[in-house]
Nucleic acid binder design. Structure first.
Lengths: 213, 213
DNA sequence: TATCAAAAGTGGTCTGACCACTTTTTAGCA
DNA sequence: TGCTAAAAAGTGGTCAGACCACTTTTGATA
C-alpha cells in the first residue's frame, strides 16, 4: 500500500519509536531518557542510529543532552531551530526584520482571535495586566505577548512564536517603559471589550514606538 | 568570552562548516554535496559525526539523501519538520486544524501586505491569474497562495508556509472548482485595487467554502 | 558522619566493516 | 561502430567495538 512512504527512512522510524517510548514510560518534560546504549538495545538498532535520531531531536530543541549526564526531555524552550534555519537561509540584515515581522504576524492574529471570542477576551488575566500597569507602572513585554499567544489556543502558532521570540532574545524580554503604559492599557482594554481594530491599532503603535530601528 | 557557548556542540560546528562549504563551493539547490566520506576527510572529523549533522539537516528539510546516489541540497520543499514537531507536540485531531489555521495566518498577512503596497498589488501576475480564471475557468489553488506568499517578501514566513503547505498535502494542491471562480476573481481584483478588507473577506469565504470539514 | 577517591554510567567521537543501492565504467556481442 | 549487459566503483545505511571526557554513584577511609 503505502510501502513507498513507509519503506525508507528507518532513521525516522526511530524518531517515532522514541516518541512511543516516551509516552509508554510517561516521561515528563525535564526528565531523563534511557541511555543511548539502553535505547539501542531496546529498539534493536545500533547506537549510531539512535544517536542520529537523538541529534536531530536535539537540533529541533525537543531534547537536551548533557555530556556524561544523560539525555533529557526538553523543559525550557531554547530551540536552535530558527538559528540553524536562518544560518542556512537568511543571511543578510533583512533576516532579523523577517523574524520580527513573522513573530508579529502571529501576535496580531492572536489579538484578533481573542478580541472576537468572548470567553477569551474576558479572562481575568488581562485585567491583572491592566491593574499591574496601573499600580506598578510596568509589565514584562514578553509575558504579555506570551499570554496572548497562549490564550489564542493555536499550539502550533505558540510553538513557532516561542522559537521566534527566542531568536529575538532579550530585546523582547524587558519591562515596559513609561511611554508604553498608555498604549498597553489601550490595547488590553480594547481587547477585553472586543474592539478588535482598536486593539490592533494599539499593538501596531506599541511595536512601532517601543523599539529602535 | 563566549567560550561557554562556543565550546560545546562540536556537532553544531559541523553544521556550520557544512554551510560554509556550501557557500565556498557555490552549491546550488538541487546540486550534489560531497560524499560523507569526503566530507569527513575534508572537515577532519569522523564519518559518524558528519552523518549526525547531515541527518539533522535532513530532518529540517535542508538536504535530501538518496541511498546510493548521494546527498543533495534540497530543491523541493518537502519538509518533515512540522510532521515531526506535531508528532511530538500535537497529538489529537486539533493538530491538523492548528496547522491549517497557522497556514492561513500567513496567507492573510501576505494578502494584507500586498494590498497595501502598490508595487506588489500591481504586479502582472495577479492579472494573469484573473485572466486564466476567466478563460480556463480554473487555477491551481496552491499556486495562487504560493505566489501570494512569495510576493509578500517575508522569506521566513515563506519558509514556514512551505512547511505547513507540505503538511496539508494534496488537499491544497488542486484546481479550483466552478464555485470558487467568482470568489477568487473577487479576491484577486480587490487585492490589485488595494481593497484590503474586501480581499480578506473573499479569502475567508474561499477558505470557508472550498473545503469540507 | 563526613570526605573524597575509585568505579560505574553516559555522551562524544573515531575506525572499520559489511550491506543495499546507484552510477559509472568496461567488456563483450551484434 | 554501436549497443547492451555485466562488472566495478561510488555512496548512503547500519552496526560493532573501542577509547575519551565528563558526570553520577558507590564505598572505603579518616
Amino acid at each position: 500500500m503505502d510501502k513507498q512512504t513507509e519503506q525508507k527512512k528507518v532513521f525516522l522510524e526511530i524518531v517515532q519509536q522514541l516518541r512511543q517510548l516516551i509516552r509508554m514510560e510517561k516521561i515528563q518534560a525535564g526528565e531523563k531518557l534511557p541511555s543511548e546504549r539502553v535505547l539501542s538495545e531496546r529498539l534493536g538498532v545500533g547506537r549510531s542510529s539512535v544517536r542520529e535520531a537523538l541529534r536531530s531531536l536535539e537540533l529541533l530543541g525537543l531534547i537536551e543532552t548533557r555530556h556524561g549526564g544523560g539525555t533529557f526531555l526538553a523543559s525550557t524552550h531554547k530551540h536552535q531551530l530558527v538559528e540553524v534555519l536562518s544560518m542556512f537561509i537568511l543571511e543578510d540584515e533583512k533576516s532579523k526584520k523577517d523574524v520580527e515581522l513573522t513573530r508579529q504576524i502571529h501576535e496580531k492574529e492572536a489579538i484578533r482571535v481573542i478580541s472576537c471570542t468572548e470567553i477569551l477576551r474576558t479572562l481575568p488575566v488581562w485585567d491583572s495586566f491592566f491593574v499591574k500597569l496601573e499600580i506598578e507602572g510596568t509589565v514584562n513585554c514578553r509575558d504579555v505577548l506570551r499570554e496572548i499567544i497562549i490564550t489564542s489556543g493555536n499550539r502550533l502558532s505558540l510553538k513557532i512564536w516561542f522559537q521566534l521570540a527566542a531568536y529575538d532574545g532579550d530585546r523582547l524580554n524587558r519591562n515596559s517603559t513609561e511611554d508604553e503604559k498608555l498604549i498597553l492599557q489601550t490595547m488590553l482594554k480594547s481587547m477585553q471589550l472586543g474592539y478588535e481594530k482598536e486593539a490592533l491599532r494599539a499593538y501596531e503603535q506599541w511595536m512601532g514606538t517601543g523599539q529602535t530601528f
